[in-house]
Design a protein around this nucleic acid. Structure first.
Length: 271
DNA sequence: AGTGCGGCCTGTCCGC
DNA sequence: TGCGGACAGGCCGCAC
């Protein structure tokens, strides 16, 4: 479900409700996520104060005195601020108990996500250690993209989705950024020129930034922390538009699988 | 070393 | 209406 703009939307939604709070504990209803959940999570969190909420790639890092709560939403996860008395739905696997009867509720039907309590530096965790640059930071530039791409034969679309190259570019925004840059997604990464990587870098930053400003993309079930929809779906140019006309030239949008992920492009605008 | 594939899970939608 | 199969926003670990 969530790509970087959706995770950023959740982060912005939950931050003001968490920072400064003393946690009352946690309720764990289903332990088996991508990594098994700590049975004693509640005991470990009890009484601790939340000092900050950060995002690294698609991971949320809830900074708590004495540790970090690492959360990933996988493909179908969501985090919502609710009241403890709100009915528990199927797949509400974890509640983080906040003051005054409020809870942060983790819901994930497919269970590809994770919730982990870390007491060491999160950046050194094996899941975060090898991550590439943040796309919206200065260190992600055409230079880094171009030099990393030399001699790489994989499709440029797979290349920009490689988290060692740059994080946070998922299946939707990879297709969208390549459309905006006029680059065909099947082109081998090593054959894309420097000027085209300049354009692609700019477009990756822009498409992610615009989506964050519209609250992310709701395709079927994405919601912000308060349950609100993401409106970027209205701005998608190619993703999910197979057989429809290109908004730019009118040609029919095509789709194919690249490395087992559906990929969308305009055969006329993207060469 | 880079690449592609299988697998983790449930829900939904489509064609028959 | 029911049923099987394909597919879904992520990403790790493995074999080649």
């Amino acid at each position: 479900m969530p790509e970087l703009p959706e995770v950023e939307t959740v982060k912005r939604g939950i931050s003001p409700h968490l920072i400064g709070c003393h946690l009352r504990g946690a309720v764990v209803r289903h332990r088996q996520l991508r990594l098994p959940l700590d049975q004693n999570l509640g005991e470990k969190l009890k009484g601790r104060k939340v000092c900050g909420v950060e995002r690294r790639a698609k991971y949320l890092l809830i900074g708590v005195e004495g540790g970090t709560l690492l959360v990933h939403l996988g493909m179908s996860g969501s985090l919502r601020l609710e009241k403890e008395s709100d009915p528990v739905r199927k797949h509400d696997h974890v509640d983080i108990l906040l003051p005054r009867g409020k809870v942060l509720r983790y819901h994930d039907p497919r269970r590809f996500g994770l919730v982990r309590w870390l007491t060491t530096a999160p950046g050194k965790h094996r899941l975060l250690r090898h991550l590439g640059p943040e796309p919206l930071e200065k260190e992600f530039s055409a230079d880094t993209l171009f030099s990393a791409s030399r001699k790489r034969k994989a499709a440029v679309k797979s290349f920009v989705m490689d988290s060692k190259v740059v994080v946070g570019v998922g299946n939707i925004y990879a297709s969208e950024a390549l459309f905006r840059a006029g680059i065909r997604p099947t082109t081998p990464a090593g054959k894309v020129s420097k000027p085209r990587y300049e354009t692609l870098t700019t477009q990756i930053k822009e498409v992610l930034q615009e989506s964050i400003e519209r609250g992310g993309t709701t395709l079927r079930d994405f919601r912000g922390a308060g349950g609100e929809l993401g409106y970027f779906v209205q701005s998608l140019d190619v993703y999910g538009r197979t057989g429809e006309g290109c908004r730019c030239c009118g040609a029919t949008i095509k789709t194919a699988n690249i490395a087992q992920r559906s990929t969308f492009w305009c055969p006329r605008c993207q060469r």
